[in-house]
Amino acid sequence: MTARPTIGVLALQGDVAEHLHVLEQLDVRTAKVLGPDQLDTVDALVIPGGESTTMSKLAVRYGLLEPLRKRVGAGMPAYGTCAGMIMLADRLLGGIDGQETIGGIDMTVRRNAFGRQTESFEAAVPVAGIGEEPFDAVFIRAPWVESVGPEVTVLGRVPGPDSAGRIVAVRQGGLMATSFHPELTGDVRIHRLFVDIVKGHA
């Protein structure tokens, strides 16, 4: 990997600008990815928060879904937040009919698992690999990870409505996903972990 890799942000919908803003603080090049040509130019990809049904539909319409599957399958590092976590899930619960994902992480994700917006919340979540201090995590109509395969490392959990510890941060090789939105907090530690993964340092 080059010393200063280019990290793209999938720009089909959602809080793209916020991710770009965080990445720009981390000594990487950044790019918006709207189509297959731009995907070819990036070393790694962030899939932002937003509405996963919209993102999925537009990825199919613009011929991006297969190229995305191919790149992720070939080992391109990727990090998904919220809707982005859904996009990286091999299996999805609570999606709409025919909702496609890119896949890549051997996990089952439940969409809108934490409930509607009035149940959206902030919580301090300890996350493995970013230091002792818990992360101030913002969950917006967030998914959780229902189950993971043997290759997946669980990085963080939060108590769900039934107080059961729900998986909200995972890593499998170069792929990472969180149910929450570090791009909304000004805390760059999770993006830095991803950049370290991209550079082969973590």
Partner: peptide, 21 residues
């Protein structure tokens, strides 16, 4: 739980998710 609902960040964060749509 200690989860905080309805904070400024949670509300504005929801609005951010609807961008580019």
């Amino acid at each position: 739980t200690d989860n905080a609902v309805g904070t400024q960040r949670v509300k504005r964060g929801m609005a951010e998710q609807l961008k580019n749509g």
